[in-house]
Design a protein around this nucleic acid. Structure first.
Lengths: 232, 232
DNA sequence: ATTGTTTTTGACCAAATGGTCAATCGGACG
DNA sequence: CGTCCGATTGACCATTTGGTCAAAAACAAT
């Protein structure tokens, strides 16, 4: 199963999945690509799971269809029976990822307690780093290389969401309920600090040495950090 | 010229540069690979500069010798006259980079004012993100993919340096001159927050929209953040 | 000019890689 | 049992790519 199964999700968005067999779906309603057979869903999931492992570790170009096929336990032509191309697999992963990735920010409740809400947001993002490091690295790889495949989503969906939540945070500042910090950079700092523990995992473990638990320690550290930063 | 020319550097370390021509250096002292002709130094620099641009944008496997050759204005066989392989170019870049990258931490002065020292460290790292984003991304690419080529340096050189400076910071905490925070995670937070502005540049600009200057804003934000975090 | 050395490159090569295709397999159903 | 259709794959292909090599330029020293 895909790693993000059972998350505060919402599917939606892109999903560039062309149905195998080539034939156009007889379904008239647009965007209704679901009716795949049991075995099809199964294999698509297997492939995406394998592709996640390979893409996140080697990047798009570093990954080969053979690697993904081997990891999935399928033949290469069989991969291409379920996905039209290597890029389609990649895009499919990215579009699923976006939702999972933004869910924690979506959940920021304007009516909750400001500091509690922001700390909860940070903690949820840290949980993603702990539980879904491969997804984090897949995303990081894409952004570092200039986000060729998701730049548009960043400038539209992501920007809209961040702007919306920034307004909320600005309101909290104005009301004196949290310190007066730039909301955008506050959000960036949450991203940076939490994702760092997934993306730079090797480095962190190399520096800390074995028998220390980076993610657990991070929780305490970051909690203190944001508490101090946000105190009015 | 390489982008990091004129930095608080120190060369040293690896430098896996085999001298073209195949002949062994007559120099008896080990590690003395320098005596290259003017044109050789020139072309090696041109190649490394081009390779930095290409590797940092496409990752190791995403980069091709043809891209690098084109960027450098040289023929592909000519590249391989100056470097034995694609990997040698990459390693050469990484080993130079390590020094530049760690210089700011090395400069942390145990006898200075704790908060001023740590803020200065943060600011120097942020300057690296502003002035050498390609180097930052090259490094990030390598770490994300498991640091296959520099894991050893991380576990030895880097760990040693961080441990050393951590002891200093712990001393400051114990003396009540800064708040009691875990030194390792404090350093990680500086890395995360500053490098994020280089590595995730596209995302940040997409979210902030044009006509905002991320790096300048970041300086103020981060200064406030660390001031609040470290206040005893 | 002549000779010797360093640089440069066009032509090639073998391996890797994304993708195609015709043929085969397998199971559901009549 | 036989038919049909989705699933699977071995063989194959064109292109890309890291790397080689022998020959040609450049250049230096006499």
């Amino acid at each position: 199963m895909p790693a993000w199964a059972g998350l505060p999700d919402g599917w939606a968005v892109g999903e560039t999945g062309l149905v195998p067999g080539g034939a156009t779906r007889s379904d008239t309603r647009m965007g209704q690509h679901k009716p795949r057979s049991r075995i099809q869903r199964q294999n698509r999931e297997t492939i995406l799971e394998a592709a996640l492992a390979v893409f996140s570790q080697h990047g798009f170009r570093g990954a080969t269809l053979d690697m993904i096929a081997a990891q999935a336990g399928l033949s290469k032509p069989n991969l291409l029976y379920y996905f039209p191309s290597k890029e389609a697999i990649h895009v499919s992963l990215l579009s699923q990822l976006m939702d999972t990735w933004l869910a924690p920010l979506r959940a920021l409740n304007p009516d909750g307690d400001p500091i509690a809400e922001l700390r909860a947001y940070m903690r949820r993002k840290l949980e993603l780093s702990r539980d879904y490091p491969r997804e984090s690295r897949l995303f990081a790889n894409e952004i570092i290389q200039g986000a060729p495949r998701i730049e548009h989503a960043l400038a539209t969906d992501l920007k809209a969401l961040v702007d919306e939540k920034s307004a909320v945070i600005r309101g909290w500042s104005a009301a004196g309920r949290i310190a007066d910090v730039d909301p955008h950079h506050l959000i960036f700092s949450i991203w940076a600090l939490t994702q760092h523990y997934a993306d730079f995992d090797v480095q962190i473990r190399a520096v800390l040495g074995a028998n220390r638990d980076p993610l657990t320690e991070a929780e305490g550290f970051l909690d203190r950090l944001f508490t101090r930063l946000l105190a009015p």
